[in-house]
């Protein structure tokens, strides 16, 4: 199938979806109050934009998102790489990991409120916990899978110190696996944003809950679409960086 035909089909599918969506409230199958038609969205978006709320909420959420993502991933990758290189450290941490890992990020909300209050730092904490585990396990597995033969090459050319092996062989060899984990984290972090803001920290998720309480369902959809668009943009940018970093692969 040609590229042009693929795009045409995708556009056609999307148009059909919007049409079906528009038709359901129009034929009163479901009331427009609880299923706003797509035609109502530009107006709702314009109102939110004009009042300045849209931009403020997006800015707040993006800052929680980015800070939480960077903190969680930095800690996760660092600890994952260290654990991947040391069987002793892995054994030392194994029970702690087994106990903490199954706890969903959202379950930390009570402690987030106790420790940080209803503040942006609480949202950052929730987001960071979610992505920490994803990046930790991705880095651990990637480092564990590095070809021992390549590490021997470092030894054979006199790079015997651990930091040299890490820089010259282990990190570049583990990069595809680590970056794959980070990409998953980028998606997961948006879920955490909504969860973290629902309990009161200002941002997209919080504004969505306000709108929902006022039965302004069209505004809820505006913010759902905003998150999808933000995720799409960030993911596309990340994939571009990833492809550039891994240009040595076929």
């Amino acid at each position: 199938m040609g590229r042009g035909r693929e795009i045409a089909l995708a556009a056609f599918g999307f148009a059909a979806f919007l049409l079906l969506w528009e038709a359901i409230p129009w034929f009163r199958i479901i009331s427009a109050d609880i299923l706003p038609p797509p035609s109502a969205l530009p107006g709702a978006f314009y109102r939110e934009l004009k009042s300045g709320i849209w931009f403020a909420a997006l800015k707040a959420s993006l800052s929680h998102y980015l800070v939480g993502l960077v903190l969680g991933c930095a800690l996760g990758v660092t600890l994952g790489v260290m654990t991947g290189m040391s069987r002793s450290l892995e054994s030392f941490l194994s029970w702690v990991v087994r106990m903490l890992r199954p706890i969903p990020g959202i379950a930390w909300i009570p402690f987030a409120i106790l420790w940080f209050g209803i503040e942006p730092s609480a949202a950052v904490f929730i987001i960071a916990i979610g992505v920490f585990w994803i990046s930790y396990f991705a880095a651990l597995a990637a480092v564990r899978a590095v070809d021992r033969d390549l590490i021997e090459v470092a030894d054979a050319f006199g790079f015997q110190r651990l930091d040299q092996k890490l820089r010259k062989v282990i990190l570049p060899a583990a990069a595809p696996g680590i970056l794959g984990g980070l990409r998953t984290a980028i998606g997961q972090a948006w879920m955490a944003v909504v969860a973290a803001e629902i309990f009161g920290v200002y941002g997209l998720g919080n504004r969505m809950m306000q709108a929902s309480n006022l039965l302004a369902s069209d505004i809820v959809v505006v913010y759902m679409a905003t998150m999808a668009a933000a995720y799409g943009l960030i993911d596309t940018a990340f994939v571009a960086v990833q492809n550039w970093l891994l240009k040595w692969k076929q």
Binding site: D149, L150, V153, A156, V169, P172, A173, W248, K249
Partner: peptide
């Protein structure tokens, strides 16, 4: 080192 080793499989760093 005063020696250099050529392995059976080339063992180049793919990146």
């Amino acid at each position: 080192l005063p020696v250099a080793l050529v392995f059976q499989d080339a063992r180049l760093l793919p990146w």
